Computed example of a mutant assay.
Amino acid sequence: MLVNVSRDWANFVRDRRSDLGLTQADLAHRIGRARQWVVRFESGHAGSASVDSLMAVLNALDLYAEVAAADDGADSDPMFMDVVDPWDVPKAHP
C-alpha cells in the first residue's frame, strides 16, 4: 500500500490494529506510549510522530515500510500531478 499523507498512515494503522484484534490500549502498551497517543495518531496526526515512534508502531503490528525517492525529483503527490486527457490529440506546431 502506498502511503503519502498522515491520514493514510492513520487509516492503515487503525485497520491493521483492528485486523489483529488489538485495542488502542494494547498497541499503546506494545509501543510504550499512552493510549491517547494512539488515538491522536489514528485521528490523522501521524505527521507529528517521530521516526522512532513510527518504527515502533510498524514493529508492533508486524509491518515494514519501504522508502523510495522519486527518480525525476518531481512531487510524487498525485494531487499535484498533471492530468492529461487521453482523447486530446496534440496539435502540430508549424
Rank of each mutant, 00 (worst) to 15 (best):
M1I: 01
L2H: 05
L2C: 00
V3G: 00
V3N: 00
N4H: 12
V5M: 04
V5H: 14
V5R: 15
V5E: 12
S6D: 15
R7T: 07
R7V: 08
D8P: 04
W9C: 03
W9P: 02
W9Y: 15
W9T: 04
A10R: 08
A10D: 06
N11Y: 05
F12G: 00
V13C: 01
R14C: 04
D15L: 12
R16F: 01
R17L: 04
S18K: 15
D19N: 12
L20A: 15
L20Y: 06
G21K: 02
G21S: 03
L22F: 14
T23D: 05
Q24C: 03
A25K: 13
D26S: 10
D26A: 11
L27H: 01
R30P: 05
R30H: 14
I31M: 08
I31R: 06
G32C: 07
A34H: 13
A34T: 02
A34M: 01
A34K: 13
R35K: 15
W37G: 03
W37Q: 12
V38I: 15
V39Y: 08
E42V: 10
E42S: 08
E42T: 09
S43D: 05
G44A: 02
G47Q: 09
G47P: 10
S48W: 00
S48C: 00
A49M: 14
A49C: 14
A49K: 05
S50H: 06
S50A: 11
S50Q: 13
V51M: 08
V51P: 00
D52S: 13
S53W: 01
L54S: 04
L54G: 07
M55V: 04
M55D: 08
M55W: 03
A56Y: 07
N59D: 14
A60Y: 07
L61Q: 07
L61A: 06
D62R: 09
L63A: 05
Y64K: 09
A65I: 14
A65V: 15
E66R: 11
A68P: 00
A68M: 02
A69L: 15
A70S: 14
D71N: 13
D72M: 00
D72R: 00
D72Q: 00
G73D: 13
A74C: 03
D75L: 13
D75M: 09
D77F: 06
P78S: 11
F80D: 09
F80S: 06
M81W: 12
M81N: 06
D82N: 06
D82M: 09
D82T: 10
D82V: 10
D82R: 13
V83E: 06
V83L: 05
V84I: 14
V84H: 10
D85E: 07
P86W: 01
P86E: 00
W87R: 11
D88E: 14
P90M: 04
K91T: 07
A92E: 12
A92S: 11
P94R: 13
